[in-house]
Structure formats: structure tokens, C-alpha cells
Design a protein around this nucleic acid. Structure first.
Lengths: 249, 249
DNA sequence: GCAATTATTATGTATATACATGATGGCAGA
DNA sequence: TCTGCCATCATGTATATACATAATAATTGC
């Protein structure tokens, strides 16, 4: 544990001072050089060591604290935080982009398209009460000739009335919505499920095949916008969530 | 679209100016009031409108840009970003905590525990080359009497030699590692799989049952530390990833 | 009329300064 | 000895200022 951390001998190549200090401290923490609970040097001391103003160090500390790497207490100082829940970042892409990354051509087709008053099950999925009208769209996304993903989407027509007139034969409902409707919060729920008969038929797999299911719910100012269920057949598909301490800075 | 955004009439209750400006702008963006591509007022103008220094506005913009809500171009100004990949945050907790949230008592048992030279498959899982020694541990986590999750873990003994002597009968290997070994990067891979005969037997489900599988790989300074496969039986389990624009600031 | 140069502009980084805030510790008084 | 007040210290927020940088606009030179 190098207590009196001197600024690295090498001159910085092209990074800003902020970045250099950030990655320095981050390195010392993730390397275990500064273990959880360790009190790091005071801001003024770090500033002197780096030959910079306290403000510069302060901004770095603010960022590290927001990333959860350190904990700050007034008068006491700044401490390396105890490792808690790992907050991994899960990048959720457009399906067409997902498909194109496999190298195969992307296509999709509408399987079903109807609007009606929401059933009890649909109200539960959309987090709605009362009797609102919804638009239900089922679409099959393909990678080359093979089914890639089945999308079952529910759109709250009270929140997005113009969806009733939308033409989803050329633009997928997901893309149509993201380009048009603002949203302020989203939640994704990921689980495994066995394909039932109709899902299996549409995805061209044996009934009972294990599928990865991603449910996405989107809100805007408290009101529900849409709920989509994406069913990926088989064991090929995987989501990737990665993690790096303070975001690279 | 309110072009000349005046500062809200109400006096701020208890929030800092930084927070107020941040949430103001965030609200205007997620509400669609300022649509993608819209150029927001210059920093100096916003500063005048809020009656503060440019630095204050600048810091807010830096944060919004890092969150991906705006895009900044020198000389041109700051623009509302096109919505791209949604980076949802997936909180990965300790399994004992996951179980305790269900209200059932947590317990676990070691099913297998062996150390040997890594096989080709194990080298692939751990991202190792050459012939390194590994520790293979299989543990069953239970919620009440029922199996909750099967953990199949591989530890790189070159990176963590003290794991060879560790007693995993009282502390689960995941907890043991997190308390002892620093790591600087992690990757999670999530997919669905049908339970094979031995997995099904251990999890007390029918063979072929759809399971959610989370693979976690951890590195430290470029070297692999551990690889763990968590198999959750059936359709009950789900991971939740949530998203809010700029983290509330 | 077109390319090269220069000026302007808005963001980007860093500084020095000021005062607020909230623990902590010590000191005084009963 | 215990309580309450106050000085101190380290972080927290904000300011005014300065100069760097990059992209656009204007102007010059040929």
C-alpha cells in the first residue's frame, strides 16, 4: 500500500489532468493497493502532489463517488468504498442492428396487428387500469431466412394515439416508437421460458425449446407507453453486460 | 417547444443549483419539449437565464453529455442527442441476498470440489492458455428447502493461489472471492438453456426445463481470475435492468 | 472565382477564491 | 464527570477568470 502516492514519473501522453488523476486513483483502488476502508489523501494533499488546484481533484472525487468507488465524509475525508452490488451496464440495441452484427441480412414481417379494448392480461402487462384501447402487434424478425426473434408488442393508444394510423409494414414498431415518442424510464425483465406451441411454430423450433425472453416496459411522465416481449429461440442468443469501475474517464 | 427557456418561477426548495439546472434540462429533453437534434441555448445564455456562472452550466452539460442525453460540438453548440442504444443498469447481487429478498431462508452446499490441471474446455471458459491449474467448485444455493441456483465455478489458481486452501463449506466461493481478490473488469453473459440430466437432477426439475444461465467472468489487470456459471431453474427467476436518463443527479 | 489564411465563436479544461456545511474534538462551566 | 458551546477541518458548491481547442465564417491573396 503506497501511502504517500507520488504523481507518476512519466509525463502524460495526451490525456487531461482530470483523466490522469482519475485513472491513477481508480487503478490504486481496483488493484487493491488502496483496500476498502482505506482513507485516501486529503484533497489539498493530492492537489499538491499533482501540482494542481483542489478543484481539479475535487471534481475527480465527485466522479469517483458517483461511480460508487469512494465514499466521502465531511471533516473525516474520503474512503475507499466497500464493494457492493455490481452495477453492470447492459446495452440494449435495436434488433436490426443486433442482426446485422451477425453478418446476415435483416428482415421482418408483421404476423398480427389489431387494436381493441385491453384485456385484463394486457392491462397487467401495460400497468394500466380501467378500459383503455391498445394496439397489439406481433412481428417476426429474421436473420437471413431463419427466425431471429419474435416481438409481441402492446401500445397504449391513450398515450400514443397516432400509432393507430402507423404503417408497421415498412418500419418496425420498436423503431417507429423510438423515433417518435419520448420516454423517461424503462425497465427490462429477462428470464427463460419454454416455447409454447404457437411460439415454437413461429420461431421454427421444437415446442419446449428453451428461449431467452426480454420484456421491455417504457413509461413517460408516469404513464405507460408500451410493453414489448422479445423471445429469442434456443441457446445461441446471449445478452452481454460489462462493467468497468468509473467508466474509463 | 419553449425556445427561450426561462428559469422556473418557483424558488428551489432545497436542491443545489446544479441539480435544478440538470433536472430542468433533463425534463425538457425526455418530455420531447426539446426533441433530438434541437440545439439548446448556449452555455452563456443559460448561465444568464439562471443567473449563475458559465462554469455551473458547463458542469451540468458535461454530466448530461456523459449520460448520453446531449451531444456537444465546439463552435456549433450543444444538441439533444439522437436516442441510441439504451444502456440499462443491471444490478448483480450476491445470491444470498437475492434469496433473502424472497423471504425464504438461505442455505447452500458444496456439491463438488476439486483442483486439477485445466482441460481445454476450462481453459476456454477462463480465457487461459498453456496448462494452468484450476480449482473447480460446484455449489447448490437453496431458498428454503428448494434449489434456487446451481453455481459452477472455476478459479485460476495462478491468480489466486490461496484459494486452494480456502474452506468453502462455510463461505460461498463467490463471497470468499469478492472479499479477498480485487478485480478490475467483469463481463456477464446471459442466455437460456435446457437443463441436461445432471443439472436437472441437482435442481430438482424435469430434464429439458428452460433455465436462465448467467455466466460471470472476472479479470484483474488483464489476467483472468474466475469464471462462474449460475443456472436458475424454470421460468420464475428474472433479472431486472432499469434505466433513467441522467441518473437523477 | 477559388484556395489559403485569419477571425470569431462556443465549448473544454484548469485556476484561484470564497463561503457553506457538517463532523469532530477540545475546552469551559456547572 | 458530564453537558454544551465553539473552533477547526475537510468536503461541497459556486464564482470569476484565463487560456486552449476546434469548427465555422469571413477575408485576403492570387
Amino acid at each position: 500500500m503506497s501511502d504517500d502516492a507520488a504523481p507518476p514519473p512519466e509525463a502524460s501522453p495526451d490525456r487531461t489532468l482530470h483523466q490522469r488523476i482519475l485513472s491513477d486513483i481508480e487503478t490504486r483502488i481496483v488493484s487493491g493497493d488502496w483496500p476498502p476502508g482505506y482513507r485516501l489523501p486529503f484533497e489539498v494533499d493530492l492537489a499538491r502532489q499533482y501540482g494542481c488546484a483542489r478543484m481539479t481533484v475535487n471534481k475527480v472525487m465527485t466522479q469517483l463517488a458517483k461511480a460508487g468507488l469512494v465514499e466521502r465524509r465531511r471533516k473525516s475525508g474520503t474512503f475507499v468504498a466497500q464493494p457492493r452490488a455490481q452495477a453492470a451496464i447492459l446495452e440494449i440495441h435495436d434488433i436490426s442492428r443486433e442482426v446485422e452484427q451477425t453478418g446476415l441480412p435483416y428482415s421482418y414481417a408483421i404476423v398480427a396487428h389489431a387494436q381493441h379494448r385491453a384485456t385484463a392480461a394486457e392491462r397487467a402487462r401495460l400497468d394500466l387500469d380501467g378500459s383503455a384501447r391498445v394496439l397489439a402487434v406481433t412481428a417476426l424478425h429474421r436473420a437471413g431466412p431463419a427466425p431471429f426473434c419474435l416481438e409481441e408488442r402492446l401500445i397504449n393508444l391513450a398515450a400514443v394515439p397516432e400509432a393507430a394510423q402507423a404503417d408497421f409494414s415498412t418500419t418496425a414498431p420498436g423503431r417507429w416508437l423510438v423515433e417518435r415518442v419520448p420516454w423517461s424510464a424503462a425497465e427490462h425483465r429477462i428470464h427463460a421460458a419454454s416455447a409454447d406451441a404457437s411460439t415454437a411454430a413461429r420461431l421454427a423450433v421444437q415446442p419446449g425449446t428453451a428461449c431467452l425472453v426480454v420484456e421491455r416496459r417504457t413509461w413517460h411522465n408516469g404513464g405507460p407507453i408500451t410493453h414489448a416481449t422479445f423471445t429469442y429461440p434456443g441457446e445461441r442468443h446471449s445478452l452481454v453486460a460489462s462493467f468497468t469501475p468509473a467508466g474509463g474517464g
